[in-house]
């Protein structure tokens, strides 16, 4: 048990680090563009001192560009802040679709780097689970990462949800799958530790081009007040 807790703690730190590194990288990119716009303002100001006319349109353009980047950095910081708060409670009720959307948003830069297109089909009705939110996000990210890594050709990943709200499930399928990937899914000690902690299992889909994360039927899933922190996809 203690061994599992160690694995969980290490994997949790790794996941937090990875998401934070990606988010801060994006903030740095926004800051770099802001910094260059400020530099351009200084260049234009120096030129104006030497008698070159200063165009109000150009100043307006620069101001809009800076504003866009400030908003972008603010969006990333909000995501990061919300992500940090997923560690607040040991267990809470979570809406699966909203959690998947949040993880997709949080990791959007990492997914873009792999040039994978992710399509999400919402569930017919909300699917609720009671889990530790941080490790739920961690497991969903591991599933997204596995699906992205297994996708070949057009690199498309489809995410859908099971229809039985008493036994929630999330399904990941790939348009084209790399050879042999489906034979070795989620076998690492980290995967096993998180799945045991969240009480979920893995199943291949019938077409053998994807897999599902399945929650057991016996658990009662009810909505709590703390649900609703998630944002809608898109």
């Amino acid at each position: 048990m203690a061994k599992d807790e160690n694995i969980l703690a290490q994997e949790g730190m790794r996941f937090f680090g990875r998401m934070s590194a990606s988010a801060t990288h994006e903030i740095k990119n926004a800051l770099a563009t802001i910094s260059e716009n400020v530099g351009l303002m200084e260049d234009l100001s120096m030129m104006a001192e030497k008698g070159h006319p200063l165009s109000p349109e150009r100043i307006n353009d620069i101001s809009q560009r800076v504003n866009r980047q400030v908003q972008r950095a603010d969006r990333v910081l909000r995501k990061l802040n919300r992500f940090s708060h997923s560690l607040d409670l040991s267990t809470e009720s979570a809406d699966l679709e909203k959690t998947v959307c949040f993880v997709l948003d949080l990791a959007s830069r990492l997914i873009d780097m792999q040039e994978v297109t992710v399509e999400l089909t919402p569930p017919v009705s909300p699917l609720m689970v009671v889990n530790n939110l941080f490790y739920l996000e961690n497991m969903i990210w591991r599933a997204i990462e596995t699906a992205c890594g297994a996708a070949e050709g057009e690199k498309q990943v489809m995410i859908s949800f099971g229809t039985d709200s008493a036994a929630p499930s999330i399904w990941f399928s790939m348009e084209t799958v790399k050879d042999n990937v489906m034979n070795d899914l989620f076998g690492s000690k980290e995967d096993r530790a998180i799945m045991a902690y969240l009480d979920i299992s893995i199943e291949k889909n019938i077409e053998n081009n994807g897999f599902g994360l399945l929650w057991p039927r016996h658990k009662r899933y009810k909505e709590k007040d703390n649900v609703g922190k998630s944002i809608a996809c898109g």
Binding site: N29, A32, T33, E36, G39, L40, R65, Q69
Partner: peptide, 15 residues
């Protein structure tokens, strides 16, 4: 891959 960064950098370099 940052389009706005490319635009502003090339503008400054061209200046």
């Amino acid at each position: 891959d940052e389009k706005e960064f490319l635009e502003i950098m090339s503008e400054r370099m061209e200046e």
